[in-house]
């Protein structure tokens, strides 16, 4: 009889659960940062573009440059580059909490760009109509832009979350732990290739679930 859960996973199950918890913290806080900070920044980037409601070349160029620089960093170098800042903010540069900070920074930059791109797809006529109705910028954002771009925003968040999972796998460098770090330490370094393969399968399953959920939700809320 083939066991449903391989023995090696049973053997390491407590460590695996801890690793999944660490990954969840890193990815969860990144998603939260993306939503709470990346979404407003992306919206502001869009609104400051040429021809948009808050057109401002200097603000747009500056913000655009910052987002581009952060996104251009190879992630591992960003983590190392940020160590002094992380130590200043978190009191330490080691551990899951400290590893979460650079993840949040890249999450904000990543999602803000996708938000800006999603909002560009909203027909200009819809914004013109909103202005003609006497809508304020806040009204335009919440009653028009986010409503019309909602499925694109959900898909962007799906793509971002999957990228965050990928980023989280290298956070072992600063002692962040996580499921990727577990696969390297217990699977690769201890020559337990079978364990590494199982962990990769677990990550693939997670990614599939997130992708499926995102696509299903985006489809459900898209009425255009």
């Amino acid at each position: 009889m083939i066991p449903i859960i391989p023995d090696v996973l049973v053997e390491y199950q407590s460590e695996i659960w801890v690793s999944i918890g660490e990954s969840s913290i890193m990815v969860g806080f990144s998603v939260l940062a993306a939503l709470l900070v990346g979404l407003p920044i992306g919206t502001f980037l869009f609104l400051c573009r040429k021809g948009q409601l808050l057109e401002n070349r200097i603000v747009f160029s500056s913000l655009n440059l910052i987002v581009n620089i952060i996104r251009s960093f190879p992630f591992l170098l960003l983590v190392i580059f940020m160590i002094p800042f992380t130590r200043f903010v978190m009191g330490t540069a080691i551990g899951t909490a400290a590893a979460t900070l650079p993840m949040m920074v890249i999450a904000i930059a990543h999602y803000s760009r996708l938000v800006e791109q999603s909002l560009l797809d909203v027909p200009k006529g819809v914004i013109h109509a909103a202005v003609s109705m006497g809508a304020s910028v806040k009204d335009i954002i919440f009653k028009f832009l986010y409503v019309e771009a909602r499925s694109a925003l959900v898909l962007s968040m799906t793509t971002s979350t999957i990228s965050f999972i990928s980023y989280s796998t290298i956070m072992g460098v600063v002692g962040g732990g996580g499921i990727g770090d577990f696969a390297i330490r217990y699977g690769y370094l201890q020559y337990r290739t079978d364990l590494m393969v199982y962990i990769i399968i677990i990550i693939v399953i997670f990614v599939q679930i997130i992708q499926y959920t995102g696509i299903t939700l985006a489809r459900k809320i898209d009425k255009r």
């Binding site: 006529g125 013109h128 109509a129 409503v147 019309e148 499925s151 009425k223 255009r224």
Partner: peptide
């Protein structure tokens, strides 16, 4: 307007 400019969602 020429286009209806309705919110599709």
């Amino acid at each position: 307007f020429q286009g209806h400019n309705l919110v599709g969602n």
